[in-house]
Amino acid sequence: MTPVNGPDARPPVVAIVGCAGAYGRWLTCFLSERMGLQVIGHDPALADSLSPRTLLQRADVVVFSTPIRDTPAIIESFARLADGIEAGQLWLDLTSVKQAPVQSMLGSRAEVAGLHPMAAPPKTVTLKGHTMAVCRARILRWQAWLDALLEELQADCVEIDPQAHDRAMALVQGLVHATHMVQAKVLCVLAADAGGLPGLHGLRTTGHQLDLAVTGRILSGNPAIYTGIQFDNPHMPAVLARLAAAAAELRDAVADGSSDARTAVAERFLQVPAAWFGDSVLAACSHDFERMGYLQADLQDRRFISVYLPQDRPGSLRALLDVFERLGINLASIHSSRTPDGKLHFRIGLDRLPVALESLRAAVEDAGIGLVLDARDGD
């Protein structure tokens, strides 16, 4: 169980507690397929999974990928069961709250680090493009191996103290989720009188679309994750109290309707926060908002073709664009994106079509460089 960096070192056996969950499944594939490690697991949902005792006896690294509310108690039960055999192991957890799980892991004799990948399990092979919070609580001999794991994950890693992490997550996750959960509840009550979601979509703004995308993402996810972030982060009651007080202040001012109330709202809710953000941050945020607006406009374009390039090699995109040039087709936009199952593709907006859409589809596929996933001519 000793991590050795030499070429003759035995690769560690990694055990995942909660291996049947979304992140447990993703991490199993990552560790086994990308890093070539032996992965074992325990999960109450799997009748044939290893028992906790067997898992502890065989593992070098134990990863707890379990529901937030249950994680501290699960860790403590494993520490009691281990009864010293965990000495020399590395224990990690993947929950959205860090202080309680890390504290529970420190009750064992293992080396300890808390991890928080701040994204749902991706459809890609790594966490590239996503952030990972790293709380190194007690790391000695496993330092080099943990560093290698984080490098292989390709996340943007942020080293942080568990308590500071939870305080920040109450704002980064908890506040954002709370406001959109409230929006969802209000929409359920009031949207029907405004034509429902289709009626609102017809009068959409960029802000409405962005908000609805976040709200929809939350509603389509696992409720236990979002309730866990609200209920199990110790900093959330204070954040929600501030949110409720601010909403009540705005409500009362609007109900008052006086010029003084308008002035107060402009100052307290707009001018003071704007000064706190600062000009450079506001300019960057405004630019990001405009870019999202342009992107949404491009993705709403009904004349487009989406092409998957199975051979990801230099020159593939150029070869694809040569087809459009040969047919005299001008491009309105081009964006790389991913399908729901994770395939990278290019969505190409078309300015006009001097040839039939089926001719374009055939030309792309006959060239042998891409597979057309979808194509439309404004219908």
Rank of each mutant, 00 (worst) to 15 (best):
V4W: 15
V4C: 12
N5F: 07
P7F: 08
P11T: 11
P12C: 07
S32F: 04
M35Q: 09
G36F: 12
I40D: 11
P44M: 11
L50P: 00
P52H: 08
L55T: 03
R58N: 09
A59S: 10
V62L: 13
F64R: 05
D70R: 01
F78G: 00
R80F: 08
R80Y: 08
A82L: 06
W91N: 02
S96D: 07
A100H: 11
V102M: 02
Q103K: 12
S104V: 05
R109P: 00
A113D: 13
G114D: 13
L115I: 03
H116D: 14
P117W: 03
K123T: 06
T124G: 01
G129M: 12
W145Q: 03
L146I: 08
L149G: 04
Q154V: 04
I160T: 05
D161C: 03
H165D: 06
M181I: 06
A184F: 04
L187M: 05
G202N: 14
T206V: 04
T206L: 01
D211I: 00
L212E: 12
G221E: 09
P223K: 03
I225K: 00
T227Q: 11
T227Y: 10
G228L: 01
I229V: 06
F231S: 05
M236K: 06
E249A: 09
G257S: 13
V265N: 15
E267A: 07
A275R: 03
G278I: 00
C285A: 13
S286W: 04
Y308N: 12
P310I: 10
V323N: 14
V323Y: 12
N330E: 15
L331R: 11
A332P: 03
S333I: 02
I334Q: 14
H335T: 03
S336A: 08
S337P: 02
G349V: 03
G349N: 03
L350T: 00
L353F: 13
P354T: 06
D374L: 13
